[in-house]
Computed example of a mutant assay.
Amino acid sequence: MTLMTERPTISGTEPRSFEALLADLDELVLPDGYRAEIIRGSIVLSPWSKGYYHRVMGLICDRLRPHLPQGHDISGGPFLYVFPGDERAYGPDIHAAHEQTFETTSNHLDGEALSFVAELTSSSTRDDDLTDKVVVYGRAGVPIYLLLDMQEEQATVFSTPSAKGYESRCTRPFGEELPLPAPFDCTLDTTGFQAPEK
């Protein structure tokens, strides 16, 4: 396996099956400050988030918790969701799923069980968050994908999942309200999502 520096990925000389990549991911000892996902047939390492992302993730969880579908929970905890049909495994920044999803001894959770997912972009993750994950989350039937473009300071909600990704999207700059469709049926206030002043 090799480790690349810009946005580190790990791949072998021969193509590996998705199951083999998942097994490699389970065995991987990560460098301090990194997390790992499977994207397009490679294990991709991403640096941990900036400090203020914690505030933003907390605001999203607090603001959406009253609107969760019955029996669902929302968290910013590190969990790995697998999408075998697309041979992907993501650790979303924020995720909501039915409580039953977490009643397993496996660390590979069912991506199709998600009712909501949010990603906060960084310079190293932005391209995959804007492309690969839009398609995979949509094809898996995740009702809402919230993409927070931290570089552009705008929020986009993707909804109406389909075989091609998502059919609907709505973008608002940070500080404005963003409508979220079913199963949340609420408006998300994006006030406080901006970076702190230097």
Rank of each mutant, 00 (worst) to 15 (best):
L148P: 00
V135N: 03
Q151D: 09
M150S: 12
P143T: 02
V134N: 03
M150C: 14
V157I: 12
V134A: 01
V134G: 06
T131V: 09
I144G: 00
E152H: 13
D132M: 10
L148Y: 00
R139K: 15
Y137W: 03
R139F: 13
A155W: 01
A140F: 13
A155M: 01
Y137T: 05
M150N: 08
M150A: 14
V136Q: 11
V135M: 08
V134F: 02
D132Q: 14
G138H: 06
T156H: 01
D129E: 07
T131E: 05
Q154P: 00
Q154R: 09
Y137Q: 05
V142G: 02
R139G: 13
V157D: 09
Q154F: 02
D129W: 04
P143K: 00
D129Y: 04
V157W: 02
K133P: 14
V135S: 00
Q154I: 07
V142K: 03
V157A: 15
P143D: 12
V142A: 02
Q154N: 11
G141D: 05
G141V: 07
L148F: 01
V134D: 08
L146Y: 06
D128Y: 14
I144K: 00
V136F: 03
V136M: 04
V135W: 10
G141L: 00
I144L: 05
Y137I: 10
P143C: 01
G138V: 03
E152G: 14
T131K: 09
A155V: 06
E153Y: 00
Y145L: 08
L147F: 10
V134L: 06
G138W: 13
L130M: 09
T156V: 14
K133Y: 05
A155F: 02
T131A: 13
V142H: 02
D149I: 09
V142M: 00
V135R: 11
V136D: 03
D128L: 10
L147A: 08
V134Q: 07
L148R: 01
D128E: 15
D129R: 04
G141Y: 09
D132C: 10
G141Q: 06
D128R: 15
L148M: 04
L146T: 05
L130W: 03
D129M: 01
E153D: 13
D129C: 13
V134I: 13
L146E: 10
A140Y: 07
D132E: 15
D128G: 11
E152A: 15
E153M: 12
